[in-house]
Amino acid sequence: MALLIRPDLKEAALWRRWLNSKDFKAREELFELYTHLARSIARNEKRRRPNHGADGDDLLQLAFGGLLEAIDRFDPERGIPFSAYARMRMKGSISDGAAKFNEHAATHQFNRRNERLASITSNQNSPESKTNLQKLSDIVICLSIGLIADSVTKEVNSVVEEDHFTHPFIGSGWRDLQISVMEYMLELEDPAKTVLQRHYLDEVSFTQIADLMAVSKARVSQIHRHGLELIRKKLEGRKR
């Protein structure tokens, strides 16, 4: 089936569904289609302007913001290739954003970890029967799962950027755990799968995921926490 699909027609169908029906799933697929371009632009901009105070993650978020703007404003019938249009938007977004950064500015990384922590600690459904220690333990485990998922993304990206992957101190147990977390994440069902993949693999902030999925940021936070809890349960099951 995949062999029959013409990528140009497929992309046109996504644009049609987004423009004519405001189909957010199509918008999300368009975003995914051009994520690699955003990454590439963020990397190039990082090399080009090393001392502006923003780190690679910040630039990537700015590029993602520019990509979303580009998707929302693009008119495919004007004949300009989207990649060229989006490239301008993303570079513009990075230029505007980077100009506002300085050493004391709160970085995206801080915000991203903060919103993640808020998501995990705001569990309203935690059974009353659990002790505070058990609740704290749940929080720590969920945070750890997030950090493990983060570490995989960082390593994968470092392959592309720096061509080094294996750290001599990384043991096989840690690697197994990373693989399990990623496998369980990919096994999740939507919307948890989408939220966790976007956040940990694509490094997209909750705000941007909310925009992509047309839901509130609080809802994304809730889905994120639920997804981590499902992974935690699977990891616990694996130990038995």
Binding site: L4, I5, R6, L9, K10, A13
Partner: peptide, 9 residues
């Protein structure tokens, strides 16, 4: 056929 090749089976 157009829909199929557009990824809309």
């Amino acid at each position: 056929l157009f829909q199929l090749t557009s990824g809309e089976p």
